[in-house]
Design a protein around this nucleic acid. Sequence first.
DNA 1: AAAAATATGTTGCTAAATGTTGTTTTGAAT
DNA 2: ATTCAAAACAACATTTAGCAACATATTTTT
Lengths: 254, 254
Amino acid sequence: MSKHEQEILSLVNLRGTITVVELAQTLDVSDQTIRRIVKPMEERGVVRKVHGALISTQEVMDPPFLARMNKNRAAKVAIANCVAELVQDGSSLAIDTGSTSGYVAQALRRRKNLTIVTNSAYIASTLSMVEGNRVFMAGTQLRNHDGAAFDRAAFDVIASLTVEHAILSASSVHPTRGFLAFDQCEIDIARAMIDISARTVMAVDATKFSASGSLPSLRMPELRANDVVVVDQSPGAAFSDLIDPKQLVVAAGQ
Amino acid sequence: MSKHEQEILSLVNLRGTITVVELAQTLDVSDQTIRRIVKPMEERGVVRKVHGALISTQEVMDPPFLARMNKNRAAKVAIANCVAELVQDGSSLAIDTGSTSGYVAQALRRRKNLTIVTNSAYIASTLSMVEGNRVFMAGTQLRNHDGAAFDRAAFDVIASLTVEHAILSASSVHPTRGFLAFDQCEIDIARAMIDISARTVMAVDATKFSASGSLPSLRMPELRANDVVVVDQSPGAAFSDLIDPKQLVVAAGQ
DNA sequence: AAAAATATGTTGCTAAATGTTGTTTTGAAT
DNA sequence: ATTCAAAACAACATTTAGCAACATATTTTT
């Protein structure tokens, strides 16, 4: 197995479909090389090949969710790798749903013996495949577009545990109003995760800081003293009241 | 263990993959030295080696589940498509865990407005992304290798619902002993799903019929009159006592 | 301190992977 | 059907990685 094979597989599975040219640019090799690597993969049936592009054989996500996953992908990957570095093998985590959290889950596959509670079936599935992890799926009835649960059972499961880190994302961030989300249920889950955690790790990419916030958004709980915020670019000085520079971690942009 | 060995291991596990040259530059030694250090590491299995680079053994796609998914893939896809044909838009299903069931879930993405209950986080995630589906994840604590739940909560969720079809798989099939599984918990879940369903659809590929069954296997509940068994090839005459020909559906081979 | 054992670097060679070029095939649009 | 552009392919050239043998440190043992 070549070095790139792994990367191609995770890219195509993550994005559902990807062109040969895109892969060549992403991995910085010629398209001919991509074809050479892909041919045996196709014969083994791990990917499907059509004229010009690859298609995942295991689509886990629907177009809308995929679109959000692919939006600002590079930044989210950088943030996710950075979050994974903050987590030691053997520690316990609560993770919410969301595209950034999805990438965090991918990055966390490199950690061992984690205890994870999440209300996202996608994240639960991803991390339960890692040998040695203990994964708790919080909730029963799944929301349609992202497979996350917000029912009573979800809160009961979360409340029955205690974890070191709560890894959360936000829809947008406002200089004075703080971290915002669209749905009350998302905030409720976030609060439940914060309540059982020793530290919150907020993962937000730079686009969230510039969101004009025309949609009615609800405020998430405020940061605690030892919480951290992982970003791909430092937000402007306008946010220094909200986020203490000491709490800010800027992910290395690979 | 050399001082460099530890560093190589943490670097490759952190980054997922790293080239020999990169390592040589980072540790400021010749690439030949890296190869010499890496060779015994590879033999011990702590890292994987490909031409030019190292790959973490704790990296993305987990072999066990993926390996099972790819085993006899063509047959499973054919069976899955056939099962999906038996299901109408808008109907309700219970689905167990397993590689064949995973393919059934993929095939069922073509159906709309399904109500699904499953104890597999993978299947729950896959099907919850389909617009219009209602998905119930049964269970909280997930088993390691396949992300399926067998806890008390799983049974409670299943028992609280009622469905048209229970779509189940089996580890092997014996002419007189019937459908077999390895774990009692799998049988218990199967029984719970059968109990809430009007009809069972057993999905088994031909390799399951030839399994010699040397491992201690446990019997699943017997078929009911209107249950069906979907296979890729007709099993031998030896199985005609177990499976009424009228109950047998042979999937069209692609 | 001398000798032995170990680790690292260097060189030349072989094998593998990748890039390049030109040609053929494919798919979509007339 | 015809045409055209993109994609796939094949053959060759080039680059890069791997390996073995030897030389040179570096450490350990006596």
